[in-house]
Amino acid sequence: MKKLLLFVVLLFGLTLGLSGCGSSSSGGKTLRVGMDAAYPPFGFQNMETKSYEGFDVDIIKAIAKEEGLEADIHNVNFDGLIPALQSGDLDTAINDITVTEDRKKSVDFTKPYYIAGLGVVVKGDDSTIRSKEDLKGKTLGVTIGSTGEEAARKIDGANVKVYNTLSDAFLDLKQGAVDAVVNDIPTNEYYVAKTADHSVKTAPVALSTEDLAIAVRKGNKDLLARLDDGLAKIKKNGEFAKIYKKWFGKEPPEEIMK
């Protein structure tokens, strides 16, 4: 009887120890991570290997490793990430997600892991868009549910076209269906750098400064603490700076390392 009681106590303790990872299918050892794999350099799918790559992928895998977990990446449309967290289909989401007061009502966020901002991409031969004022009355491409969409809708007279993927928005920009694409500056710069024909360029327009963070279901304090712990560890041991330099070609800013 004593042996049985001891076994039950140990099993209960193990269950509590794993509960910080949410209700993942393997009892907490696998971290189900949501990501819209259409946001390079943060997250995208390698067409040859079919594996997911990017800054966010490397960051969440490094955090998971520090916490003794395995990150299982799931490709989910951006506007479906928060609902998937709320329903329990995902444990966490990392996807160039900006921390906003509205989103804080639905999910909890880790400490920031990137400082971003909203910028604008235009056609390579465009010389008309040089400031926020120049966006008035223009047709602007944005991705659904993004802060880019929020910002674009606040611009006087702007005709906002919403896309499911950023790739579609950029394609329409090249074809002249939109005058500009409003999106996160790092992603914009990555797309422009990868466009060999120089058909697009970044405009000298910065609409905002934003913190990016990792999201978990509202109230999942155990998992939030583990993610923050893992993030702090990779910042301290140099892994974070290594990943940052790999994708952005420079050292991370001091304010994000605190």
Rank of each mutant, 00 (worst) to 15 (best):
R103E: 05
I129H: 09
G157W: 02
K2R: 10
S51Y: 00
E67M: 13
K258V: 10
N188A: 11
G124K: 07
P83T: 10
Q86R: 13
M47E: 14
I243A: 09
L171R: 13
I155V: 13
E254N: 11
S51N: 11
L6C: 01
F55Y: 15
K123D: 07
S51W: 00
L16R: 11
P83S: 09
T128H: 04
I59Q: 02
V182C: 06
F7Q: 11
A225N: 09
K161D: 01
L90N: 09
N183T: 14
D102F: 06
L6R: 10
D211H: 12
N188S: 13
V120R: 07
Y113N: 08
D58Q: 09
V142I: 08
K233G: 00
P253A: 10
A71D: 07
A203Q: 05
P252H: 04
S23K: 15
K132Y: 04
S208I: 02
V57C: 04
A213T: 08
A177T: 02
S26K: 15
T202I: 03
S146D: 09
F109K: 05
G141P: 09
G176W: 03
D56V: 02
M1I: 03
L14D: 01
G124L: 06
I214L: 03
Y163M: 07
I185D: 00
D91N: 15
G157Y: 01
V8R: 06
D184K: 03
K174F: 02
G119P: 04
M35T: 10
N46M: 00
A196Q: 11
L207C: 05
E251R: 06
L166D: 10
G238P: 07
